[in-house]
Simulated scan of single mutants.
Amino acid sequence: MDTSTAPASPPASTAGATGFAILAEGLVKVYGDTRALDGFDLAVRPGTVCGLLGPNGAGKSTAVRILSSLLRPTAGRAEVAGFDVVRQPLEVRYRIGLTGQNAAVDDVLTGRGNLEMFGKLYHLSARQARRRADELLEQFGLTEAANKQPKNYSGGMRRRLDLAISFIMSPPVLFLDEPTTGMDPRHRMEVWHGVRRLVGQGTTVLLTTHYLDEADQLADNISVIDHGRVIAEGTPAELKSRIGSDQLDVVLTNPGDVARAAAILAEITRAQPTTHEEVPRVSVPAVNRAATLTEAVRLFDAERIVVSDIGIRQPTLDEVFVRLTGRPAESTAPLEGRA
Rank of each mutant, 00 (worst) to 15 (best):
D220Y: 04
L42W: 11
G76T: 09
Q314M: 13
L23M: 12
E144S: 14
L71N: 03
T48A: 08
P334K: 08
L137S: 06
R313D: 00
L70M: 14
P89W: 01
H210I: 04
G113P: 08
I305L: 08
G39R: 12
G19L: 11
Y153T: 04
I22Y: 01
E138K: 13
L248H: 00
E91N: 13
P73F: 04
L71S: 04
K240T: 12
N221F: 11
A15L: 03
P280C: 13
Q149D: 00
L198C: 02
S61C: 04
E330A: 15
E303H: 15
R132T: 12
R338A: 07
T110F: 03
L161M: 13
A296D: 05
N56Q: 07
A215R: 10
Q128T: 06
G19H: 10
A302K: 15
N56H: 07
I222W: 02
R65V: 01
G200K: 12
T3W: 14
P171K: 01
Y94I: 09
S125N: 07
S166P: 09
T110K: 06
Q314C: 10
N221T: 15
M189C: 01
I305W: 04
K29M: 05
P236W: 12
A63F: 03
M189Q: 14
T99G: 13
M157R: 08
V205I: 11
G182I: 10
N288H: 13
V250D: 01
I310C: 02
Q272G: 05
V49L: 07
E278W: 10
A8W: 06
P236D: 11
A296K: 06
N147H: 13
D184K: 07
N56S: 12
V306T: 15
A129W: 08
V230P: 08
A259T: 15
V86A: 11
L23V: 07
N288L: 10
R229V: 05
R338G: 00
M189G: 00
A145T: 12
A145E: 11
H193G: 12
L124E: 03
